[in-house]
């Protein structure tokens, strides 16, 4: 079971609700994914509040746990204020904390993220910080009190998968007591499977499903990949070796030790 701040979930997928062709497709894709947690955002009212109502009514029908984000915040002050609005709006202590440092790469400002994390934890929030593969930053976030840390696979919306495998393997090995979620950059189900094979607890994705040709089928594909990845991790994968080792037993091979038999 996936555990996030003391709550348990059977699905290891956190799925975004943005960029689908329609709200109806979004709703079907979330169902197909099996996800029990969806990410949402806080935005200025539009169309007299009707857009927000239409969206929120669909989310409520899905009966899932909501993880609001601070997407689009470039300062600690904006991220903290947005988190406070999210807590009021969605009635949850959970916050996916994004403090972005660079417009082109949407790379997190890890210094600002740590600062905002401390403020929000002290204010009673349960923080899901979006960070990079930097081990020291992840450790600082865990030391500050985060029970969940969410390093990127690659840039948000890029679909490149896991770019810094070695660093992320190291992070998994070092941060045993923390739930680690690969957030951002996953494009293919195989990327998600790999994250779980590496021992990551869950993945968070959006564009890979929403931007695919058929979001509902892709949501299912990710669900299967996550099942496979987790099962592989729990089963324990073989260690890669330098040279071949025959899988078929050698003993009893026909024509062994006869004329013309060759072995080297």
């Amino acid at each position: 079971m996936l555990e996030l701040y003391g709550q348990k979930f059977s699905s290891r997928l956190l799925i975004g609700t943005a960029r689908y062709p329609s709200l109806a497709v979004m709703q079907e894709a979330v169902k197909a994914s099996g996800a029990e947690i969806v990410t949402v955002s806080v935005r200025r009212e539009n169309a007299g509040g009707k857009d927000g109502d239409a969206f929120w009514n669909i989310i409520r029908e899905l009966n899932v746990k909501v993880l609001p984000n601070t997407a689009g915040c470039y300062s600690v002050e904006d991220a903290v204020s947005t988190a406070e609005l999210a807590r009021e709006l969605f009635n949850t202590k959970w916050i996916k904390l994004e403090v972005i440092g660079d417009k082109a790469t949407l790379q997190p400002d890890v210094v600002g993220t740590l600062e905002a994390t401390k403020i929000l934890l002290a204010d009673g929030f349960e923080v899901f910080p979006y960070c990079t593969e930097d081990l020291t930053v992840a450790k600082r976030l865990a030391d500050a009190g985060c029970k969940v840390v969410m390093p990127w696979g690659s840039q948000i919306g890029s679909g490149k998968g896991i770019l810094h495998e070695e660093a992320l393997r190291r992070m998994r090995a070092e941060l045993r007591g923390v739930s680690l979620v690969i957030d951002a950059g996953l494009g293919a189900p195989s990327h998600a499977a790999k994250a779980l094979e590496m021992g990551y607890d869950a993945v968070l994705l959006n564009t890979a499903v929403a931007g695919s040709g058929d979001p509902v089928r892709m949501a299912k594909a990710f669900a299967h990949a996550l099942d496979a990845g987790r099962a592989a991790f729990e089963a324990g994968m073989m260690k890669p070796r330098e040279i071949a080792q025959p899988s078929t037993p050698v003993t009893g091979t026909p024509f062994a030790n006869t004329a013309n038999a060759r072995s080297s």
């Binding site: 609700t17 990410t39 200025r44 009212e45 927000g52 997407a71 609005l85 709006l89 948000i156 959006n206």
Partner: peptide, 10 residues
């Protein structure tokens, strides 16, 4: 004054 609503997010 900021007046906000729930919206799609990733």
């Amino acid at each position: 004054v900021e007046i906000v609503t729930p919206r799609q997010g990733g």
